[in-house]
Design a protein around this nucleic acid. Structure first.
Length: 280
DNA sequence: AAGAGGGCCAACCGCGACAAG
DNA sequence: CCTTGTCGCGGTTGGCCCTCT
């Protein structure tokens, strides 16, 4: 179906967000909640398209975001999840509280991919690479054709009750040798049903008990109430303010809402720049 | 000390899914 | 059931920053 551009190209600002724009967006969302992104820029007084506002909020301004590098355990979890879900970054991100799909995607492309290749693992199929130029510790070099190098028992995520919680086992240094390929179309037909079942049950778990804290999603959004949003009801659901929100430049926003925050958390916050923080 | 090259990350783009009319 | 509009997702890119020479 033919689609219109998400916003008028004329008069719409692009590029890095300024602190002022961040302030406007945060102020607006904290006051009104998330509703109808298309209307947000107009109502918030921003010369951005709604999409850009949503992206900025979800990837950067959301208070429950963790910042900084993924921990080893998180990395391991991403690898495991990627082996099951493929490039479904949003699903993977849903298993890592405080992490965004964009963040995980970037981390995958810049770090994990190389790491896996270095370890002799195909980052796409999660199977041993065909041939290592130098002799490798895993010299069996099993062909990638539906090889099942390890039993599923060794995969921590085969245990449904695990529910994505990072365990010490998961953060072990051994690579996840998972037979299922990353994408549905490359999945071997032999394991297809089994893998599909596992995948579906896994995704189902996610539906039932996502570990990501969704409480920052305001009721107005959950109910799709476009206009009946109220600060009071929103505040009732603001439990997310009490946890992880590094890199959120409250001091610059000067919002009274933040007055009651734990000062220890405030101490951790970095001064904002055009990108609020730059954790390079 | 300066330039080149690469790494990293925030943001954009386009498409598919879904809901409303 | 079809059309239209919005949202969300994944892929890609632009540009800043760091490291190497």
């Amino acid at each position: 179906m033919g689609r219109q551009p998400c916003c008028d190209k004329l008069g719409v600002k692009k590029g890095p967000w300024t602190a002022e724009e961040d302030k406007k967006l945060v102020n607006f969302i904290l006051t009104n909640g998330q509703c109808c992104w298309r209307a947000v820029p107009k109502l918030a007084g921003l010369l951005r398209c709604g999409k850009s506002c949503r992206l900025r909020w979800t990837n950067y301004l959301r208070p429950d975001l963790k910042r900084g590098l993924l921990t080893e355990a998180e990395e391991q979890l991403v690898i495991d999840l990627h082996a099951r879900l493929g490039n479904r970054w949003s699903k993977i991100a849903g298993r890592l509280p405080g992490r965004t799909d964009n963040e995980i995607k970037n981390h995958w492309n810049t770090h994990i991919k190389k790491k896996l290749i270095k370890m002799g693992i195909d980052p796409v199929t999660h199977e041993p690479l065909k041939k290592e130029p130098k002799e490798d510790h895993q010299d069996q070099a099993s062909p990638p054709t539906n090889s099942q190098p390890e039993s599923a028992d060794n995969n921590p995520l085969e245990q449904p009750e695990n529910d994505g919680v990072i365990t010490s086992e998961e953060s072990s240094s051994s690579p996840p040798e998972i037979s299922s390929s990353s994408s549905e179309e490359t999945r071997s037909s032999d394991n297809n049903n089994n893998d599909e079942d596992l995948l579906m049950s896994y995704l189902w778990q996610e539906e039932v008990a996502p570990i990501v804290n969704d409480s920052w999603k305001f009721p107005a959004t959950a109910d799709d109430g476009k206009d009946d949003i109220g600060l009071a009801s929103w505040e009732d659901n603001c439990t997310w303010f009490s946890f992880d929100h590094q890199g959120f430049g409250f001091d610059e926003f000067g919002l009274d809402l933040f007055n009651g925050l734990n000062m220890d958390m405030l101490m951790d916050m970095e001064p904002t720049t055009s990108g609020i923080t730059d954790d390079h």
